[in-house]
């Protein structure tokens, strides 16, 4: 297991876990729709198409946010 941070909260995930797997688990635990999430890793946005090929590393800082469309 490795330690990562999701929105500043510490979390243990499997070594080599893909971003898709981590986000699916997080969305289930927090009742969030996966389709409503954008994510940045260490301050760089990870496009959705790269989630399944991106492996989380120890101490990665994930920032999850949703789109704001109002104006």
């Amino acid at each position: 297991m490795i330690t990562i941070f999701i929105n500043d909260a510490m979390k243990q995930v499997e070594q080599g876990a893909s971003l898709t797997k981590v986000l699916e688990q997080y969305s289930l635990e927090n009742d969030i729709q996966l389709a409503a999430i954008a994510v940045a890793i260490n301050n760089c946005v990870a496009p959705r198409a790269t989630w399944h090929t991106t492996q989380c590393q120890a101490n990665d800082k994930l920032e999850l946010f949703s789109v704001v469309a109002g104006g």
């Binding site: 409503a36 954008a38 946005v45 496009p47 949703s66 704001v68 469309a69 109002g70």
Partner: peptide, 11 residues
């Protein structure tokens, strides 16, 4: 790239 068109919007 940031917000794909099929993304769910809540806000």
């Amino acid at each position: 790239c940031l917000f794909p068109a099929d993304m769910k919007v809540n806000q």
